[in-house]
Design a protein around this nucleic acid. Structure first.
Ligand SMILES: [Mn+2]
Ligand SMILES: [Mn+2]
Ligand SMILES: [Mn+2]
Ligand SMILES: [Mn+2]
Lengths: 217, 217
DNA sequence: AATTATTTTTAGACAAAACTAAAAATTATA
DNA sequence: TATAATTTTTAGTTTTGTCTAAAAATAATT
């Protein structure tokens, strides 16, 4: 399997698990920053290989085989991210681009040894679940901070947006995975939130709050 | 720089440091298991980029820039090999193929952090020197076991052939980096050697002896 | 229902990196 | 030195993955 094929599979996987339906040619093109015609070409190839279900003009989904392949790429990506943060001391906003390269290294033995070396983590540095060697994923209970009601408490367990800008913003506000967040109030005009983290009160926009996953406590 | 360009640079580097002269199109083709015409195409491209000195029919050598680039690829290859053996528990005959992939990962910060994580090793699992971040190499004193004289002692410090078959043979004979080897005698008929390792006497062919580097003690 | 807008596919082209076959240059040999 | 053998380069294809422009299909609006 080529890097390009792997990247398409991964994108289709992310798009289908996000929306839980068939995904359109344009959606793939936009996510991959390429042209729709290129996507069509690749979908035909992936369909020939039995990795996707594709009928002209009807959108696309992964076959069982394609889904497993995609999960293995995601597994590699997230395990390498854990390695970079836990062992090499990278910060969580630096690891994604490097993991985009490392996820294409082909060796099942390597990734399983890496898994063991890292003590078989179930989540990556952004709170995303890591598929095990059979492709199984343990879903964790979580909801967006923006969906909490007043005076509820949540533990930060993940981020929806994993861009460097957002992660650096969180660093600045001293919000990290594991941070306890108290939802104080919501401003009805702009939906901004008043919260309390690390003993400090803070106002955050709705955009921030709807990119932070928390677990109710 | 593409993977292919990097592989050509690395091959030219190995061939020029082995023979210390201009290297031929055919030599590159043979080492890379490709055709001479493909090599010619690539040499033109590398020359355009200022990475090699190339004149038609005259052979090729690396420019300073090309040499540094090649050294950085070798550095990555060998550091990853150390990681695979020291941290993940691979044996020395399993790591080369995986390192062939990992050497193309692009991130200077990654490789320098890996270097520190491994405590800045100066040699890889096969006894080959690891260039530092400026490309400097500390050459170690070594000679082939086949060049020793009777009753001399040597410490095994490296292998010339790094094929899996040879390395597994050494494992079987319990010869590893650091093993103390006593040269007992040489059979003039076939140049085979009688040696003593780990208290045991052993007969090895000349082919074996001329692929084992030792340091005189 | 007909027209318009959007999405998707097809057709044709291009760059990278490989190949085969043939030509040109170099090297070896008689 | 002339001829033969070898090496290297050139010319022309192929495959992969991309692109643009045009055609076809689908979806949205009058
Ligand atoms: Mn990532
Ligand atoms: Mn992640
Ligand atoms: Mn190696
Ligand atoms: Mn090595």
């Amino acid at each position: 399997m080529t890097f390009s094929e792997e990247n398409y599979l991964k994108t289709i996987y992310h798009l289908t698990t996000a929306s839980d339906s068939e995904v359109s040619t344009n959606a793939i093109a936009e996510k991959m920053e390429t042209k729709a015609s290129s996507v069509t070409d690749m979908l035909k190839k992936l369909a020939d290989k039995g990795l996707v279900n594709y009928k002209k003009y009807q959108g696309v989904s992964l076959t069982e085989e394609g889904k497993l392949a995609a999960k293995m790429i995601v597994r590699k990506h997230r395990l390498w991210e854990v390695f970079l943060v836990e062992k090499l001391g990278f910060s969580w906003d630096e690891v994604h681009d490097i993991a985009e390269q490392l996820e294409h290294i082909k060796s099942e033995k390597l990734i399983n040894k890496l898994d063991d070396f890292l003590d078989n983590p179930t989540e990556d540095p952004h709170g995303d679940p890591i598929p095990d060697r059979e492709g199984r994923i343990v879903k964790i209970e979580k909801q967006l901070l923006s969906e909490l009601s007043e005076n509820q408490f949540g533990i930060c367990v993940g981020v929806k947006d994993t861009s460097s800008e957002f992660l650096k913003y969180l660093d600045k506000q001293e919000i990290a995975l594991g941070s306890k967040i108290e939802f104080l109030s919501k401003e009805s005009f702009d939906l901004s939130l008043r919260i309390k983290v690390n003993g400090k009160e803070l106002t955050i926009s709705n955009k921030i709050a709807s990119n932070l996953f928390v677990k109710l406590v």
